[in-house]
Nucleic acid binder design. Structure first.
Length: 667
DNA sequence: ATTAGGG
DNA sequence: CCCTAAT
């Protein structure tokens, strides 16, 4: 039995012919509405599966119709743009075919033609039916039959539609020369003709080679070289591409990216030319739609020359195979359905505008979106970074404003896909998470770079904060850590410092709030990603640690202890054993810190008690006992601060108990 | 890879 | 903290 159902159309076209309702199918209601371009013919088989072969037919028909249109156009010499052709083709396409009695076709002029077409199609369907029966009888695979059908249809066509026939003839002869025609016509048109040519060629080949299973695959190959649609797109200017885009999708686009346009158009062509296979499965008397897509060979050929698209297509390969696969068709299809649904969910960006398209080209779309986002990201990050770099704090607000817009688009995905860690710089992260990741870094970077001695300032501020307003620290990110044990996140400190700066320097309260929020965010982010040390490319080309992580007392003490245990100089040891948990401290850091401690312990020790209250705040408040200990150790290991030397030691002496040791060490 | 020392 | 040199 044969059933004609409305398949998904190529929604893009916002053609208004509307109301072309499929008389036959209940399906139409759920699915296609007034889908202008493609209503597919579907033959529902016993198992409820759609037979792709019919799609091919449809495509064929479409192509032929297009051809006809083109023909007309050229004959008339009218300047009408491709779009016209397009719209018409979509209008005249399957829908009318399906509803033979349909009065919807507004084009009175075409009525006659339409009728003939419809007749033709009916006949064709009959043939298909026959073929199918034959096929079933012989047990031959679907695709072969499909092509056979197509073939017959074509031949049929020749008889019925003179114009088309003519066109086909020319197509055949010109096959290799399509390109020449291209330049004068819009991309869309070109593509169409290309496709058409492709179709005709396929047919021819099939005819010649017989309709064997491999025929299909063989077809795709030879044609490949002939197709030049891609090249055409390549040659187009942006403006032209825009036109083409509009013609293809029926809407304007502001995208300037050539690649994007090209791919988009290619996809559009894919959609419109190649009737996707919409599989329907019958369950409980209901038709369950399965979004299945397939690209015709011709389309493949067109697209294939674009690497990106190629890749995309590659993804869909299995589906194609599935369609052609005689046996496992159903399973694969259903599998694909699953994926499709998933994809649909994730690729939300353009869903609104091109839901249909998205569905049909889901895979491509998804990847596409990702690519887009990536590109966007690049742009964005570049801008943001620089701006932050040059304008510093003042820009924060602006940045925050700018961000949400694009964040939102990607957000959902971010959350889901995000796998990366803040880790290394230059690490390639395949997901879209960059947005989130980069942001905090950028902010900090901006700040850092803005201040001539960013780090020092930061530190000071931090310490300031710690010393002076210990209270407000809490709102930052739980700075207690600093004072207490962990200090796993000095970044916290940094955040605080930032907020401080803002509070002092910027009079804008609103922004202040915003900032603190942001900072908070940053903090949390930093927290989560703690394990990795954020690095930043320096002007010189090297990489530099992102934050100056102030040494917490706990750390210092650990350090001291470590030195006491393992000896100064065994930094790697200490690092490994005592600082295992502090991933951001390197052995070099330990060494440096020790050096500083040494210096500190020997030099100002004496004076600090009196005046240093302020200074202390600025620089790490290392308790005297610790310093003493440091000194002890230093002497034990015969480490004496070089310049500070024994002189000072001897001179100033030191608090009580270490004296003897000092002495001994000194002596 | 680690260490030491200078910047 | 970064960088380099020397181990």
């Amino acid at each position: 039995m044969e059933t004609v159902v409305g398949g998904e159309g190529n929604d893009e076209g916002k053609l208004e012919e509307s109301a072309v309702q499929k008389s036959s199918s209940d399906l139409s209601s759920s699915k296609g509405i007034a889908d202008p371009v493609v209503y597919k013919l579907v033959r529902v088989e016993g198992d409820g599966r759609l037979v792709p072969a019919t799609d091919d037919e449809v495509m064929e028909v479409e192509g032929l119709l297009d051809d006809e249109k083109s023909e007309l156009q050229s004959l008339t010499g009218s300047d009408q743009i491709v779009q016209t052709i397009f719209n018409e083709s979509s209008l005249t396409g399957i829908p009318q075919i399906e509803s033979s009695g349909l009065s919807q076709s507004e084009n009175t002029e075409d009525t006659g033609k339409l009728n003939s077409r419809l007749e033709y199609i009916e006949e064709m369907l009959q043939k298909v039916k026959q073929e199918e029966r034959l096929r079933l009888a012989y047990g031959s695979p679907d695709h072969s039959s499909a092509y056979v059908i197509v073939d017959s249809q074509c031949s049929d066509q020749h008889d019925k539609l003179p114009g088309v026939d003519k066109k086909l003839e020319s197509e055949k002869t010109l096959q290799g020369n399509h390109t020449s025609v291209v330049p004068t016509l819009s991309g869309r048109h070109v593509s169409q003709s290309e496709v058409a040519g492709e179709c005709s060629k396929s047919r021819d080949e099939l005819r010649e080679g017989g309709s064997s299973t491999c025929g299909i695959f063989n077809n795709s190959k030879p044609d490949f070289s002939i197709i030049k649609g891609e090249i055409c797109l390549d040659k187009m200017s942006i403006k032209e591409l825009h036109e083409t885009f509009k013609a293809t999708f029926g809407r304007e686009t502001t995208v300037k990216d050539k690649q994007w346009l090209k791919r988009r158009i290619a996809m559009g062509l894919t959609n419109s030319c190649d009737v996707p296979n919409t599989s329907f499965i019958i369950r409980d008397n209901k038709l369950v739609k399965t979004g299945e897509e397939e690209r015709s060979n011709s389309v493949y050929n067109i697209l294939i020359e674009d690497p990106t698209v190629k890749a995309v297509i590659g993804d869909c390969d299995d589906s194609t195979i599935a369609i052609f696969s005689p046996t496992e068709d159903y399973q694969i299809v259903s599998d694909k359905r699953l994926r499709d649904s998933i994809d649909t969910n994730s690729g939300a960006e353009e869903a609104s505008l091109e839901q249909r398209a998205a569905k049909r080209v889901r895979k491509p779309t998804k990847r596409y979106i990702e690519e887009l986002s990536e590109a966007e990201f690049k742009e964005c990050s570049g801008k943001t970074v620089t701006s932050a770099k040059y304008s510093g704090l003042g820009l924060m607000s602006q940045k925050t404003q700018a961000r949400p817009a694009r964040n939102s688009s990607l957000d959902g995905r971010n959350i889901i896909t995000r796998l990366d860690s803040l880790g290394g710089f230059g690490v390639h992260v395949p997901c879209v998470s960059r947005v989130r990741r980069s942001r905090p870094r950028k902010n900090i970077m901006g700040l850092m770079k803005f201040h001539p001695d960013g780090e020092g300032m930061m530190v000071n501020l931090v310490e300031d904060a710690l010393g002076v307003n210990g209270s407000h620290l809490d709102d930052g990110c739980g700075n207690k850590d600093l004072k207490t044990v962990s200090a796993p996140d000095q970044s916290l400190v940094l955040c605080i410092a930032e907020s401080d700066i803002d509070k002092k320097d910027s009079a804008m309260d609103v922004i202040k709030v915003e900032q603190s929020l942001e900072l908070k965010h940053v903090c949390s982010l930093a927290n989560t990603t703690d394990g990795n040390i954020a690095t930043v490319p320096t002007s010189k080309g090297g990489i530099r640690r992102k934050h100056h992580r102030a040494w917490s007392l706990a750390e210092v003490m650990k350090l001291v202890e470590g030195v006491a245990r393992y000896g100064a100089g065994r930094w790697s040891e200490i690092k490994r054993l005592a600082f295992a948990s502090y991933s951001y401290r390197t052995s070099v850091d330990l060494k440096d810190k020790w050096r500083n401690l040494l210096k500190a312990s020997f030099a100002p020790t004496t004076a600090d008690k009196g005046i240093n209250s302020k200074k202390q705040a600025a620089s790490m408040p290392i308790p005297a006992p610790v310093l003493v200990r440091v000194r002890e150790l230093a002497e034990m290991h015969a480490q004496v601060p070089p310049s500070l030397g024994s002189n000072k030691l001897a001179k100033y002496g030191n608090g009580g108990r270490s004296v003897h040791e000092t002495r001994s060490g000194y002596l």
